[in-house]
């Protein structure tokens, strides 16, 4: 009971407190609505604009998920090759680290040109490139940081390479993959929304936010951001659910210390 309280009640209280402070400051200092609307107004606007912002959010979510899947699957495939052949690893790894620290979002105007500004693929492409590097780097680590003892065990059983891959390397990589996906999920929404700031379909959330902000309709812009946040939180929950199913054995999931 105490644990549940701490786990859910404490964050909820902090959240409410932040909103209260925000509301208080906006009112106490008479901050004008076009600079920063009070949360109460944002909430009102979210419900008023819901028929517009929610479908816009889903449109953008599709782009984010498309890029997330494409980028992750490519990253996992490359990770298998890279972990299998160490010569490729030596060639690829430093490049991946360098490319991973580049501001990939800067590609947005270019992919908009390549694929067409209203084509969701222009957003998916940016997202795919953004998630590719963290997923690939972590997956390689997960497939290779196995520990000599387990590899020796499989050798002592004269296990073929694919058995070692399937029974040892792959399960070993799952926690690495899932922690990369937590990052990738957040990146995917950032990639999709920000690329839409550079132009996109009228049905997209990023376009909605940038248009409303351009018209200084701040409450509406914030409502769009609230939807983006809800989607991000939903995706995080999905990854956490996947962790529960895929790695129930992982130390992070243990209820009592080992």
């Amino acid at each position: 009971m105490n644990r549940l309280l701490r786990r859910y009640l404490a964050p909820a209280l902090v959240f409410v407190a932040v909103l209260a402070v925000w509301e208080f400051f906006v009112r106490a200092f008479g901050i004008q609505g076009f600079l920063l609307p009070p949360p109460s107004e944002v909430v009102r606007t979210v419900s008023a604009e819901w028929p517009v912002v929610w479908p816009a959010g889903l449109f953008t979510l599709r782009e984010a998920l498309g890029g997330l899947f494409g980028g992750s699957i490519a990253a996992i495939a490359v990770a298998f090759a890279v972990s299998r052949w160490s010569t490729i690893r030596v060639g690829v790894q430093p490049l991946a680290v360098a490319a991973g620290s580049a501001p990939i979002i800067a590609l947005a105007p270019i992919t908009n040109q390549w694929f067409g500004i209203t084509n969701p693929v222009s957003k998916m492409a940016v997202v795919a490139v953004m998630v590719f590097f963290p997923v690939m780097i972590n997956m390689v680590r997960g497939l290779t940081d196995v520990g000599g003892a387990k590899v020796e065990l499989m050798n002592s059983l004269a296990a073929p390479d694919f058995a070692t891959l399937w029974k040892v390397r792959l399960p070993n990589s799952l926690p690495y993959l899932l922690s990369a996906l937590r990052v990738a999920v957040a990146l995917s929404l950032i990639g999709a929304v920000v690329t839409e700031y550079f132009g996109g379909s009228r049905a997209a959330l990023g376009v909605y936010i940038s248009q409303q902000a351009g018209l200084t309709r701040m409450a509406e812009a914030w409502a769009g951001i609230v939807v983006a946040t809800l989607l991000g939180a939903g995706l995080q929950l999905l990854v956490m659910g996947a962790e529960r199913v895929l790695i129930p054995w992982h130390p992070s999931r243990r209820l009592t210390p080992a």
């Binding site: 003892a149 387990k150 020796e152 065990l153 499989m154 002592s156 059983l157 004269a158 296990a159 058995a163 029974k167 040892v168 399960p171 070993n172 799952l174 790695i247 054995w249 992982h250």
Partner: peptide, 30 residues
């Protein structure tokens, strides 16, 4: 390759994602 021997190392070297039964069954799976 004929699996004439079994090995036990200083550390138990169990696969932490498998339950005890699955760990014991590993050589049989292989």
């Amino acid at each position: 390759h004929d699996r004439d021997y079994g090995m036990v190392f200083q550390q138990a070297t169990l696969l932490e994602w498998r339950r005890v039964l699955g760990n014991v069954a590993l050589p049989l799976e292989v």
